[in-house]
Design a protein around this nucleic acid. Structure first.
Lengths: 258, 258
DNA sequence: TCATCTGAGTTAACGCCGTTAACGGTAAAC
DNA sequence: GTTTACCGTTAACGGCGTTAACTCAGATGA
């Protein structure tokens, strides 16, 4: 809800400082500096306790930064996808997935912060922020567009586990779902399943719990994505999309002679 | 290489202290206490700097604990599998997978430490320790037994990406592979792929990056495991194994009326 | 046996960290 | 013009990993 009166000078100042905090914190992390309240404050020419006027504690700062990093990362996914026309959501999804992996490998610290940051089951603000995650919205939207176009099959509501049914009808995960008819909410189940697969490889690769050569080759990631073409009704497009994926992956491994 | 002479008194003392450090550290983590050199030392009636006679730094302690936790967790996987006969590796694998998930959900901190702990690409001792991970050995062995019995198909060496071929011929991941013939090393590829899928759901659930209701229902995990029965040549056994999985999952959700 | 040396432990200290409490000053509010 | 609310300060607490200098018992070697 927007403020009734235009923001006063104090309010604008406050918001500016708040934004600067998040921006500086994000910058620090990007520069490889360990994130800390003191570091953020000192770079802003302030002292650490002052930050408590803006964030409740350290964890809240981390969560804000995570949200911001996710937003920035999603921007890069969108840029990668923009190389393909908007009426080709399948190619866009492939490009976005590769971009997601690219980001996770290039910035493992950021990736861990955003996607491996443990979230307690507490019904906290942390969950709320997670539900807003930009990347989740972006990927669900791409999946939805693919469905509109290719009409892949998805489980009907009564095929779903009752608990899952509740979950897809009133989703608590980041998903652009309001415009999806209740009967079509089985789509979200497909989303969760495919996201889990993508998340698996990428986390494995990003955290390094994987043979480095397998990471370098990109084969594990490639196979995983290819396996999901069929369930998404893209079997007929497999050759074309494989090329899209390989093109994007080639970009990560510049043609070195040796 | 074993010592030529029997261990002297000093050596035995030293080893005992070393073991106590790892044990105490593991205990602390299990009790929910934040792991720190000072906490470990003080519980042992020592001061923190003394620990530097045994571990190079904090990270090394963490890695040792991670290794130990992995070993202990694998023990629970084996116990869960032991409910099924040794000549039924398929049921044992299903039970072990559910036990893996059970452990990850019950001890998210420990799980994160062992399986989401970032490992740099540095060719460090950390990698070496990872390569020895007990759980990896256990799961590859189960997969191998399933192959012996059901002879599911796997890629031949020349079907594999050349880089991946090197990786499966001389694996750097935790895997019991020495006894697998080079021609059959495509098995390890199947292992990596299936492990990546399992890892994905379980990490998603354990870290909480998932709708809590989906976790509670276990449906995402269940579907993922079921999808892997066919590639492992277990399609004919699907009904039986589904029951195994559901039985094991039911154990996690005790029959509450409401 | 006695001198020597090794090494496991100590204390003290440094520089970080998150966080709280008490206080000052400035800008908004009445 | 006075009061109030708020943004920032300094000081301090307890914790962390880590290093340096030292002590002292136990093994070692002549």
């Amino acid at each position: 809800m927007p403020a009734l009166h235009p923001p006063t000078r104090r309010e604008r100042q406050r918001e500016a400082t708040y934004d600067e905090i998040v921006r500086v914190a994000t910058d620090l992390l990007t520069e490889g500096v360990e994130l800390s309240l003191r570091a953020v404050a000192s770079r802003m020419g302030m002292t650490a306790p002052a930050l408590y006027r803006y964030v409740a504690n350290y964890q809240e700062l981390v969560d804000l930064v995570a949200f911001e990093l996710d937003k920035a990362a999603t921007q890069t996914f969108m840029e990668a996808a923009a190389k393909y026309p908007d009426d080709d959501p399948a190619a866009q999804l492939c490009a976005a997935c590769v971009a997601f992996r690219r980001w996770a490998l290039a910035k493992p610290r950021e990736f861990a912060l955003v996607f491996a940051n443990p979230i307690g089951s507490e019904t906290s603000d942390r969950r709320d922020l997670l539900t807003l995650a930009t990347s989740g919205h972006y990927f669900t939207d791409l999946l939805y567009q693919i469905w509109v176009r290719y009409e892949f099959s998805y489980p009907s509501l009564d095929e779903l586990d009752p608990i899952v049914r509740d979950a897809v009808l009133d989703p608590l995960i980041p998903a652009k779902a309001e415009h999806i008819e209740p009967e079509d909410r089985g789509l979200l189940w497909v989303y969760m399943r495919s996201w889990s697969a993508l998340y698996g490889v990428v986390t494995l690769e990003s955290t390094g719990h994987c043979d480095p050569r397998v990471i370098q080759s990109g084969a594990l990631f490639r196979s995983t994505v290819l396996d999901w073409l069929e369930p998404l009704g893209l079997a007929a497009e497999a050759d074309r999309l494989t090329k899209v994926i390989d093109d994007e992956l080639a970009q990560d491994r510049p043609p070195v002679s040796e």
